[in-house]
Design a protein around this nucleic acid. Structure first.
Lengths: 300, 300
DNA sequence: ACGTCCATGCAGCGACGCTACATCGACAGC
DNA sequence: GCTGTCGATGTAGCGTCGCTGCATGGACGT
């Protein structure tokens, strides 16, 4: 029973297919398929079953994939066991963040980590639909993800979750607008407005819908834009108003952020790590710095 | 970091050398040496150091070997995870026992296990010095071992211990001897006798020495024989008396077993299993039967 | 019905790990 | 002292295992 094959099985589950798993493992689909065949042969039970043109894990496959995580964790602990004798943690950590978190956190993270020395952080920005965040942990050691702060089931898929900060969502209005001078806005104030929202399925989309429920009228979404800097430019130009996170936006001079009263609107920013990656000392160090940095932002 | 290399490291520790480890792993010493070299290269620290013409593990190597056990356990759990879907436990279990336990337990164990069906038990009898019992778990799944019941440090070396039974040690005397009629013997009764003991370093050797301490005179050992059936023959022929376990000896018509009063003399019979082997369902089943059988013997 | 996508079989090649043998150092015996 | 033995470690050569590349077959959408 090969550990590489177990890792492959785990990847097939989290990526949802042979081809996708092959991509994150830097292999061809054929190799993945062969590994699965060998694995299920010496497991004695079929681990996958065809469904449509793809496949999914059987109950046995699912159980084995769960066990595979424990194997990976044990192996990583083994590495850590002698890394402890090798001196201070060193290596490279791959960090991914969605755009606004990248803007807010990555510069500070890089300077903080650089101060410790010996650790390389490879950053990248990936913004995906909410369901897809856990699967990113196959490509990155730390994935900064976000979700609605209220009434959210959280992250599935066996990832370790480290909360970073809860960020209120404010209403972004043009600086010249009559709403710009208010200290707070009620849902009724913005009931009939034109909205600029994020694309469907993306984390904060549901928050705007929830606000709509309070006023009784569904918000009229005129644009769907994911990049908050673009949204700010649109708001400043009077093309609509938007819900924007308080800490990671608001740089545009033509935009004012006004708190929304009467509704708890916020997004939760979390760091997601695979359990085995979490065992790596370097990863733990980077996570530590990330948490500390988020704490500073919340207070400052 | 290869799991086979980790397993090899563990074997080198428990066997105390490259050559011995190679033997239990069915490899050449060269292969073992190469695996260690690769392992310590990508661990970044030396895992072994030469001492005399052999070697021993460094602190890092020891830590890594500990971690290797957890890896093996996790892997075995993975196997068990899908074996649960494959139906009732099947396979072969290698059981080793020292001679008297083999005589006492193995026949019953084989019939009990055969009654369940599907499980093959490969028996062998190995009687070694007390220190050497844990290392036997590298060659066998279940090792039935014994040690003095009182004042014994127990088994080292990271094996899982399952107690089977505590067996009193009685004094074996010739049937014609004046001592044969007694219901119990005091240490003073046998102070000046000629003794037939086991070889030095073997588990029950220390018990006889302890009895000597009570009488103030060291027992005079005239023969050292490990096989209890041979001992009985010698006792029956009048060549000396001996301390023999109550349940697993006494078949010889010319020998009487008389309890020893005033001293707690006994041996503890344990089953030793490697933590990873203990995860195998078949092994667990065989152990279960072994424990049940030992319980019957104690009561019956 | 056709094109596309996805998983899977098969041939061929490369790489890795093993065996066999030689070497070197350490201990015991004469 | 030297010699013989044992134990660990390098080196050459070979076998095997797993990967790539390509072809096949089934499933969905147009």
């Amino acid at each position: 029973m090969d550990v590489r094959a177990l890792e492959t099985l785990r990847a097939v589950r989290s990526q949802g297919g042979v081809t996708a798993a092959a991509a994150v493992l830097h292999l061809t689909p054929s190799a993945v398929s062969q590994q699965l065949a060998v694995l299920s042969r010496d497991a004695g039970v079929p681990l996958t079953e065809r469904v449509g043109r793809g496949l999914r894990l059987t109950a046995a496959g699912d159980a084995l994939a769960d066990a595979a995580v424990d194997v990976a964790v044990a192996l990583e602990r083994a590495r850590a066991a002698c890394a402890a004798f090798a001196g201070s943690p060193t290596g490279t950590v791959r960090v991914s963040a969605f755009q606004s978190a990248a803007w807010m956190l990555l510069p500070g993270l890089l300077t903080r980590v650089a101060a410790r020395g010996g650790i390389t952080v490879e950053c990248s920005d990936e913004d995906v639909a909410q369901d897809a965040f856990p699967a990113l942990t196959d490509r990155h050691d730390v994935v900064v993800a976000h979700r609605p702060a209220e009434a959210d089931p959280g992250w599935g898929g066996g990832v370790r979750v480290v909360p970073l900060l809860r960020e209120p969502l404010d209403v972004a209005v043009p600086a010249g607008s009559p709403l710009a001078g208010r200290v707070a806005l009620e849902p009724a104030d913005v009931a009939g407005a034109d909205w600029i929202a994020v694309r469907e399925g993306f984390p904060v989309a549901r928050v705007l819908a929830d606000v709509g429920v309070r006023t009784g009228t569904a918000p009229r979404v005129v644009q769907r834009i994911n990049d908050f800097h673009v949204v700010e430019a649109l708001v400043a130009a009077g093309h609509g108003i938007s819900l924007l996170p308080r800490y990671s936006s608001g740089g545009h001079p033509g935009v004012r952020l006004v708190p929304l009263a009467g509704v708890r609107a916020g997004r939760q920013v979390d760091a997601l790590v695979r359990p085995d990656a979490a065992e790596r000392r370097v990863v733990a160090v980077v996570l530590e710095e990330l948490v500390a940095l988020a704490g500073e932002l919340r207070r400052g």
